[in-house]
Design a protein around this nucleic acid. Structure first.
Length: 386
RNA sequence: GUCCCCUUCGUCUAGUGGUUAGGACGCCAGAUUUUCAUUCUGGAAACAGGAGUUCAAUUCUCCUAGGGGAUGCCA
């Protein structure tokens, strides 16, 4: 690369023939003596004519040994590092390819990058890069080094740990907007504000309010945030989001009617979901084939007595000419009275018959959304089963 | 080892030289309720420790401890 050659010509870089073994030895002795570890600069001023035969040299940067360099960081403040602490880094490898340190510098410069925001694990790199910028006579970009995010146990995030890509969080059922809100709040604040939309975040975000300490990833809070975003989300949008899960469940594409069915039930469904996954699961009963499979708790509710009561209820439903929530509720309440039962006693078995589970949106909503035919059909299915 | 950074409830955080140290998640209790949720009310819960500056320190300074990061012919 020309930049490396330019530094070479300016006497700001040099060839180094040190072997891997020598390097390891330098590190060991430096550590033993309590000095800064790293290359000791043995080829810094040596003439290339002394080079050992058959060794492809690397090109090292002749970094200043005296004084110090201070990084004017937008979040860390002024951080000063002694130049002596920084050894002569490699610019070009033995095979003439550039190292990361050289690449970023010239890339950023060529691309006209003005601001660098990255993890604070790059803080010492910043010092080295600043030296390089100075040697090249280039203006250094503004820098901001933000704290790292740790795993739930306080350890550094790793592949084993939860530092997964965004797709992983999507697959766990987190909405992108909830994820953004959570991450934003992790290390940055705007007073006591917690729920911050993406639009609001764009307007408010700044570097000054970024904290300096590392934070832990807390799934409980993420989940809570996810729940509130789901509750506030548009029904049609949520239906689209869970459609793929439902299609996997039924094994084929959702029909227009099924799609509509789910959308119509969404208002009650989203109220109790904390993730896209659980939302999809709680929606399954809507599009399930008759007869419904009962889960354990549901079948326990369907005693012989309960089933008889439900059949009588179904008969009453038959006589309805209008299938509206009000009509349905009226019939159920009247039935309960006629059977001398509390509403709950009839609502739970009914829920079991209609959904196959013990958990669902309000029972009248379920009835209405399912429609007269399906509702009565599912109730009668229960009779036949037993 | 050396260098750099960090430290307010369990977690994410607000905050000020004088506050009952605030909010959120979680937790506990209660209310509402056809299930589960939601919602509402109340509660427990923190300024890491030690010096110093000051009439007064959570807030300013120093030290200690603890945590994190960097120490590659990786990026």
């Amino acid at each position: 690369m020309e930049v490396a050659n330019q530094l070479l010509n300016d006497g700001k870089a040099y060839y180094c023939y040190a072997s891997k073994e020598e390097l390891a030895e330098m590190r060991d002795t430096a550590r033993a003596e309590g000095r800064a570890p790293g290359y000791d600069g043995r080829w810094r001023d040596r003439d290339p004519s002394e080079a050992p035969a058959g060794v492809d040299p690397v090109i090292r940067f002749k970094s200043p040994n005296e004084g110090s360099i201070t990084i004017n960081d937008a979040v860390q403040g002024d951080v000063t590092i002694q130049n002596a602490q920084l050894d002569d880094l490699i610019l070009l490898r033995a095979d003439r390819t550039p190292t990361y340190m050289l690449s970023v510098i010239v890339d950023d410069h060529d691309m006209g990058v003005t601001d660098i925001i990255r993890g604070d694990d790059h803080l010492t790199n910043a010092a080295r890069q600043l030296q390089l910028y100075a040697a090249l006579g280039w203006d250094a970009p503004k820098m901001a080094h933000i704290p790292l995010i740790h795993g739930p146990d306080g350890a550094k995030l790793s592949k084993r740990h939860g530092a997964l890509g965004v797709e992983a969080y999507r697959d766990m059922g987190y909405l992108p907007e909830a994820m953004r809100n959570y991450l934003l709040r992790l290390g940055w604040s705007h007073g006591d504000d917690e729920i911050i939309s993406t639009e609001q975040a764009i307007e408010w975000f700044n570097l000054e309010n970024i904290g300096k300490s590392a934070s832990r990833f807390d799934f409980d809070k993420l989940e809570n945030l996810n729940g509130t975003y789901i509750r506030n989300a548009d029904d049609a949008y949520l239906t689209t989001v869970i459609a793929p899960y439902l299609e996997e469940y039924v094994g084929n594409k959702l029909s227009a009617e099924q799609h509509l069915l789910v959308k119509n039930a969404m208002n009650g469904l989203k109220e109790r979901a904390k993730s896209v996954i659980s939302l999809a699961e709680s929606s399954q009963f809507l599009i399930a084939e008759r007869p419904l499979a009962m889960d354990n708790k549901a079948s326990k509710l369907l005693t012989a007595d309960a089933i008889q009561i439900l059949q009588r209820l179904a008969d009453r439903f038959d006589t309805l000419t209008e299938w509206t929530k009000e009509q349905i509720e009226e019939v159920v309440r009247v039935s309960a009275e006629a059977e001398d039962l509390k509403l709950g006693k009839i609502a739970q078995p009914l829920r079991a018959a209609l959904t196959g589970t013990t958990v669902s949106p309000g029972i009248f909503d379920v009835l209405e959304v399912l429609g007269k035919e399906t509702s009565i059909g599912r109730i009668r299915d229960v009779n036949i089963d037993s």
